[in-house]
């Protein structure tokens, strides 16, 4: 169950070269939203758009393909996408919202749907929730320290950031590649990530990440009825190339291993909180 409930899992990538060019992996998120927008499945999507500062995302409501393209790529720092969830139904006038987010953000979406505290009119307006895999995240100052101090490159010059094969990678516009061991980045992690028990966005309609699939491809879990509908239509419309997950390397085994590692480690942190103090402990949000 470390991978959550799902109806199918494949390796896939967008069939649109323009999307693939700036996408983190297979461009699944951007392609899905572009298709859903065009088909009227959603009338806008909350994504992590660019801001004034390099690699610092700002949640935006994209209603055009151009806005979706501008939000491609992983920003390894917090993007409070849920902060726009209610507003999307208000001054933006959306009826069918698409939203991308990390597993914790998918949890927030589902909680708002079931327990809409101060979230009037949100529950029935979530049309497509796309989750991305997430091992951990970093505050912006952490990202600055990792990239500028450890990788020795200016954030402004970075074209792509990536975590993979046990390393943190920074690619610059001018072609330089820096890699540092992930071990170095641990102290910069957001502490809240250490109690997180979800790796592959178990609560999304469709979830996707890089692990399991070859470079330029993504691993995609199709989870809900709604996700299955949209995915099926997008495939039929020729939006994606797919391969059975069994035929790609490293495949699902690695996804399962990493998910198990994350959950096991964080479960321990959670348990340790119960006896953190002398005769008293720290809060556990799961009980």
């Amino acid at each position: 169950m470390v991978l959550g409930n799902y109806k199918s899992v494949v390796a896939a990538r967008s069939a649109d070269n323009e999307i693939l060019k700036g996408a983190q992996d297979g461009g699944i998120v951007t392609q899905l939203f572009a298709y859903a927008l065009e088909e009227g499945i959603i009338d806008g999507a909350i994504v992590a758009g660019p801001s004034e500062e390099p690699w610092k995302p700002e949640p935006v409501i994209a209603t055009t393909k151009a806005e979706l393209l501008a939000a491609r790529g992983t920003k390894y720092t917090l993007s409070p996408n849920i902060s726009l969830l209610k507003e999307a139904t208000r001054s933006y006038g959306l009826d069918k919202i698409g939203i991308v987010g990390t597993p914790c953000q998918m949890q927030a979406v589902r909680k708002a749907q079931l327990y809409p505290v101060g979230m009037r009119d949100v529950p029935d307006k979530i049309a497509l929730a796309v989750g991305i895999f997430c091992m951990e995240n970093f505050p912006y100052q952490s990202l600055e320290a990792i990239v500028e101090d450890h990788c020795n490159v200016k954030l402004e010059s970075v074209k792509k950031l990536d975590i993979g094969k046990g390393k943190f990678w920074a690619y610059t516009e001018r072609g330089a590649v820096t890699q540092i061991p992930l071990k170095v980045t641990h102290k910069y992690e957001q502490p809240g990530c250490h109690v997180c028990l979800d790796y592959v966005s178990n609560l999304a309609d469709i979830s996707t990440g890089s692990v399991g699939a070859p470079d330029g491809w993504s691993t995609v879990f199709v989870r809900t009825k709604n996700g299955e509908d949209t995915w099926g239509k997008a495939i039929a419309a020729g939006c994606f190339e797919t391969k059975p997950i069994e035929e790609v390397k490293p495949g699902l085994d690695l996804v399962k291993k990493l998910a198990t590692d994350k959950i096991t480690k964080n479960q321990k942190t959670l348990e340790a909180r119960a006896t953190f103090g002398v005769g008293k402990g720290l809060r556990n949000p799961y009980i």
Binding site: D43, G44, R90, S91, Y92, G93, L94, R120, D121
Partner: peptide, 26 residues
């Protein structure tokens, strides 16, 4: 809700105007 931010206890009005304008879609 669209113009006021909320139908019951509108959030959009503020001293000096409104926090947000609305989109053409709205």
């Amino acid at each position: 809700e669209i113009v006021g931010g909320e139908a019951i206890h509108p959030s959009n009005p503020r001293v000096g105007g409104m926090y947000k304008n609305i989109t053409p879609r709205a």
